[in-house]
Simulated assay, not measured.
Amino acid sequence: MSGPLVKICGVKDAATAIDAARAGADFLGFVFFRKSPRFVTPEAAEEIILDLKQAAFDEGFAMPRLVGLFVDAGEKELSEAAPLLTHFQFHGHESPERCSELGLEFGVEVIKAIPVTGKGDVSDASDYEEAADIILFDAKPPPGAGQPGGNGVSFDWTLLSAYEGETPYIVAGGLTPENVGEAVKGQKSREAFLGVDVSSGVESAPGKKDDALVKAFISASKG
């Protein structure tokens, strides 16, 4: 499948990981933030990844890149998960310097989430131009949400016209199989646009992915 890259975030079990990878997901995200309904331990993620690698080998589908989502995590937390991952995704107050240091220290690529409410937020992403490998533009969490992403809230994608950086970016926030085609259509002419990210938009309940919705989302994104 061609088209934008697709990230399925908040994977909690091997069946979901395998089904998503089989359907063409390019990234799978594991949430290492305890307050999230999608939280997994590094041990649980490792089991899922072992099963996924076996299925990829047996069936011949491509292994997705493996992303760990963190919010202001300490070294211990990062070091436990790093050997499993290709990317760290930071949703906290990590500075550009911190992002750059951690990527080098642990030998992973860095995705930095930028919560968006206005054009100023999009312009601020330029601070991470050298520090992150990918920028993830997400909707700002509603008051009292308790988690930085996966809230099913969208933002005005036209605001991304303010982004002038060269670092590739991914669009997240309130995407579903129904609206992702529109989101992609509005971005695909932009050189830095890399792909889309979904969590709650492919769930039947918080933290429970729906295989049919995952497949529909990937198909709508890449179609």
Rank of each mutant, 00 (worst) to 15 (best):
M1T: 12
M1P: 05
S2R: 11
V6R: 02
K7Y: 00
K7H: 02
G10Q: 03
K12V: 00
A17E: 13
I18Y: 04
F27I: 10
F27N: 01
L28C: 09
F30D: 14
F33E: 00
K35C: 01
P37D: 05
P37T: 05
F39D: 03
V40F: 11
E43N: 08
A44H: 10
A44F: 02
E47W: 02
Q54S: 15
Q54K: 15
A55E: 13
A55L: 04
D58E: 15
D58W: 06
D58V: 14
G60I: 01
G60M: 04
F61L: 11
F61P: 06
A62L: 14
A62F: 11
M63W: 08
G68V: 12
G68C: 07
F70E: 10
V71W: 03
V71T: 08
D72S: 14
E75V: 09
L78E: 02
P83Y: 15
L85Y: 03
F88H: 09
F90W: 14
H91W: 06
G92T: 07
R98E: 14
C99W: 11
E101G: 04
E101H: 08
L102T: 07
L102W: 15
G103F: 08
F106P: 08
K112E: 12
V116C: 01
V122W: 13
S123D: 04
S126T: 15
E129I: 14
I135K: 03
L136Y: 06
L136P: 04
F137K: 00
F137L: 02
P141H: 00
P142W: 01
P143V: 02
G152E: 03
D156N: 11
T158F: 05
L159N: 03
Y163W: 02
E164D: 08
P168H: 11
I170L: 11
V171G: 09
G173F: 04
L175Y: 01
N179Q: 13
A183Q: 10
V184E: 13
V184I: 14
V184G: 07
V184K: 07
K188H: 05
S189D: 05
G201Q: 06
G201R: 03
G201C: 11
E203P: 11
S204F: 09
G207H: 10
K208S: 04
K215M: 05
A216I: 06
F217K: 07
F217I: 08
S221R: 05
K222T: 10
